[in-house]
Design a protein around this nucleic acid. Structure first.
Length: 234
DNA sequence: AGCACA
């Protein structure tokens, strides 16, 4: 009943989203937030009257979706608690992956006025930041590919302030907040206007900052941008 | 509240 009697599905359905957020930013932020649970194959969000305030996030595994449903239930996202359920039907991207995809016909209640023209082939833009619906993931663990210690600079001394590098240009303070505020002791994110790509994140103490650092080290906001997190220099 | 795949 917590999930509304809908059977598990690889795709989660999210409602009560803040409708003021632009579609693109919304997708990117959802990607940020949910890729910690597994590989995301697609994110669907539409701003039509019927569908605004809702989104579908398709995972490659049902277990990822299950964890997301439970753990992110009521998560405050852009000031509004997310309401998350399993999707009622199988997503096209999932059906395509398993080869069972049949282009939808005008079966049920598809009173489409949009049948005038065939949208024959669309170069389908992917929902996920920068490109491919495949291979862009943090793989269930947020400690992805970045290997500290391979090479250059030695670790700074523990500090309650974290120094984040290698962020994609479009990273917003809110995106980082949503990632870091999940960890106890979070205080604030500080982006450096003059220097895109880096940020400082303040925690109450260096124990708490360490936990967040370990959890999010290598986290990819886009596939090309594993976060590099170090303690800030004093 | 509202379950799609421009």
């Amino acid at each position: 009943m917590l999930s509304g009697d809908i059977p598990p599905n690889q795709t989660i359905y999210i409602k009560n989203l803040n409708e003021k957020i632009k579609k693109d930013e919304l997708k990117r932020s959802l990607y940020c937030l949910f890729s910690q649970y597994g590989r995301i194959l697609d994110i669907i969000a539409l701003k039509t009257p019927k569908l605004r305030g809702q989104a579908w996030v398709c995972f490659s595994e049902v277990t990822a979706a299950s964890n997301a449903v439970r753990q992110m239930q009521n998560f405050p996202f852009y000031e509004k608690p997310m309401r998350i359920q399993y999707a009622k039907t199988k997503s096209d991207c999932i059906a395509k992956e398993e080869g069972s995809f049949v282009p939808r016909e005008k079966k049920k209640k598809q009173e489409e006025k949009a049948e005038k023209k065939k949208y024959a082939d669309e170069s389908k833009q992917s929902a996920v930041p920068n490109g491919g619906t495949h291979g862009a993931s943090n793989g269930g663990s947020t400690q992805a590919s970045f290997r500290p210690g391979s090479g250059a600079q030695e670790a700074a001394a523990p500090n309650n302030i974290l120094f984040i590098e290698n962020l994609p240009y479009e990273t917003t303070g809110r995106m980082l907040e949503m990632l870091f505020e999940q960890y106890p002791g979070f205080k604030e994110v500080r982006l450096i206007e003059a220097k895109p790509g880096i940020a400082f994140v303040d925690f109450e103490d260096d124990g708490q900052s360490s936990m967040a650092m370990q959890a999010l080290q290598g986290f990819k906001i886009t596939p090309q941008n594993p976060m590099i997190i170090n303690f800030a220099k004093k």
